[in-house]
Structure formats: C-alpha cells, structure tokens
Design a protein around this nucleic acid. Sequence first.
DNA 1: AGTCATATGAACTCGCTGTCCATATAAAGG
DNA 2: CCTTTATATGGACAGCGAGTTCATATGACT
Lengths: 210, 210
Amino acid sequence: MTSQPSPRRGRGRRPAAEVREGVLRAAAGLLLAEGVKAVTFDRVAAAAGSSKVTLYKWWPSAGALAAEAYFTHSEQRLEFPDTGDLRADLTAQMRAFVRLLTEDRTGPVIAGLIGVAQTDPELSAAFSRHYSGPRRALALATFEKARARGELRDDLDLRILVDQLWGACYHRLLIPDEPLTEEFAVALVDNALDGALARRPGDPDEAPAA
Amino acid sequence: MTSQPSPRRGRGRRPAAEVREGVLRAAAGLLLAEGVKAVTFDRVAAAAGSSKVTLYKWWPSAGALAAEAYFTHSEQRLEFPDTGDLRADLTAQMRAFVRLLTEDRTGPVIAGLIGVAQTDPELSAAFSRHYSGPRRALALATFEKARARGELRDDLDLRILVDQLWGACYHRLLIPDEPLTEEFAVALVDNALDGALARRPGDPDEAPAA
DNA sequence: AGTCATATGAACTCGCTGTCCATATAAAGG
DNA sequence: CCTTTATATGGACAGCGAGTTCATATGACT
C-alpha cells in the first residue's frame, strides 16, 4: 500500500531523483515544444507538478535548467568518422552538423540556448561543459591524427581550424544572412583545406600585382 | 515662461522627432551601462521621461529598440582598407574587428543583441539590415575586387569566405571556449588564404590518396 | 482660432521572479 | 515499530516587466 509509487503522492517530501527526473522531463518538453523562452521556473514547476522552491534549490537559472534538460534528453552521438581521408571525414561531419542545425526543432533550440547564454553565465558554462567543449575536443583530436598522418600543415593552429568550420556554421545559424545548407558545408570544407588564394603558394616566384 | 522648451513639458503631445531622439538616447544609455537585459520598455520609458504607450507605437519589441539605439549612437566606420594587398588588408580588418568585439562595452552589447535576436525576430531583422548585412556586403565587394585582381580563386564562393572569417570571430565571442585575440585574427586570415592542407595543391598532379 | 493628431499619466491584468511560511511525508535512527 | 530529521510541498507575497485601455493636454496644421 505504502510502496505504491503514484496515486496520492501530493504533499510531502518525495525522493530527490524522482523529482529531478520529472522536472527535467517537463523542461525538455517545454523546450522542444515552445522554445527556450517557455522554460521558466513557473511553467516547468507547474508542468512537472513540483514546487518552484524545489527548482530554485537545484538550478541556478531557468537557462541552466533548460540546458541540462536538453543535454540529458538528447543523447547525441559524439562520433567522428575516421577513415584516414580527412576531407571525406570532415565533409561527412560537417554535413551531419548542418543537418542537425537545420532540423525543425534542434536548430532553434540550440540557437535559443546560445542566445540565452549571452546573458546567463550559468547557461554559458553548462553549454561549454556539456556541448561545445566535448565537440571541440573531439574535432581537435581528429585534426591531430590527420596532422600526424601528414595531411595537415605542421605550423597550423588546429583550434583555429575548428572555429573556421564550426564557427562558420554557427554564424549562418545565428545571423541568418545566408542559408545554411549541406552544399555550404561541403564547400566550406574545401575552402578550409585548400585555401582561398589563386596563386598556388608552391611557386617560388610570387607573381607581383602588376 | 511658457515658451521655454523644457521646464514643465509634461503632459501633451511633443514633436515626434524629439521624443524619438530622447527615447533612443535613453535606450542607448541603458544598453551600454547595464546590457541588453536592462533595455525594457518600462525602464526606457522612465529614463526618457516618455510614456510606455509611445514606445509601443514605434518599436515592435524591446530588442528592436535596443538595436536601433545602438546602431544610431555608435556610428561605426564601415571602411575597408584596399591597398591591393588582400592579405594585409584583410588582416587589418580582422584585427580591427576583434578589437571591437573585445572592447569592454561593445563586445557584450553585440553578443547580447545577437543573443536576444535568437528569440526576437524583429531584432534579428534589424541586426541583419543595419549591421551584419552591410558589413557582409562590404566584405564581399572587397573579395570581388581581389578576385578581379587575380588574388582569389575563380571557383570560390566568396560568401563562404565571409563566414569562415567573421563567423570564426563570432564563434569565439558567443561560445567562448577559446580566447578572442588579435593573434587569432592574424592566424585566421592566413589559414583562410593558404588552406590547411600540407600538400601544396600547386602540383599539376593532384596526389592521390594512396 | 479651431480642429485634429497624438503624446501623456494613470490604472489595470497578467505572467515570471525570488522569497517567505507552515505542513506533510520520506528517509534514517532507536 | 516508533521517533527524529530532512526536505518537498502549496500558498502567499512583493517586485518588475509586458501589453492594453482610458481620458486629457497640447503641438501641428488649416
């Protein structure tokens, strides 16, 4: 009788894990359905059937709660293909990333989280720790391997390469002056690998501008 | 007494231009002093000594008001050096951009505006129209000229080059996993122009991956 | 001067924030 | 099994901002 987990569970203390789980589930629901702005302490508490006070105890800001809810419930695969052909692997990776960012729900959610992060340090930290950080590290590791294989220049700052590629995609996501497409992803990789210069730098005589 | 333009100007209609000017000035003050979050209709109206109703009539959202205030009062120079040496010009431009983004006030303000824009379509449109759009067009024009001079590859999508360069800077501004420095700007330009590959593509025979 | 357009203050509803209680109950200890 | 302690709960609260409505005062135009 008393061990039944549900029927009239209303008032007093409930196990912390159970409460947290319910709150995160409710927050994720609101986040995916209505966007970041809908994730307020008030609405999450109401949707989860919990008390606002409980939420304030565990999460420093609504943004941090939204971030944790998203990262918890979206189990993204963090994998890089590594076939030994950097251009092919990178192209596949960037296409997948663009596909993720242009999905109906995912794109706006990620953009919204980054947006709120600009005025919510807690969310910013959570985003770096759970999302952008690991991905950056993974990309870097892939580049290290490619460089060890001799595919990349030795004098390159690989971190900058990450900004050139992922940053370009985020740029089109966050400041949508140009469309974010898979063709963009493909051309982006080529640009980054081959460079923009017309004169191939292999030539000893740099053609003078005349 | 009654013709004095200021002392007891309280009640009735005032010239639209004068009101708008005061509102924008107040909004810019709040924006620079306390950030985007401080630019609310309530506070701007109070600071400008105007009525909230007036603000609602002219600006669709607090974000749009903040954007207009910023663009109006920050008269940025929209110039590109064009000495005929693309690498030097671009390096100068990116250094200046990074310097702008890392200024005490400007950086957070721009980041905040982009952040709010993720959930404020009006602000997003204003940002594109007044800020990112013109800058993108200017950069593109510079690249066109460089390409006409033969400095850039003919098959290049120049718009992507813009994303690689400016997008990388915005990336470090908005998702601060790595520092945004002038050294970064310099290396970024080199990366974009020279490419990341170790094999110089100048060779007529493209080395097959085997 | 008279008329019209409109900026104004005040008041209002609503939602969200952040914090205060007293209470009910789960978990731990005897 | 009973007691104690920790804590989740509902309710209430003040404060702020969004967004609207109203009557009024006054600049601008005829």
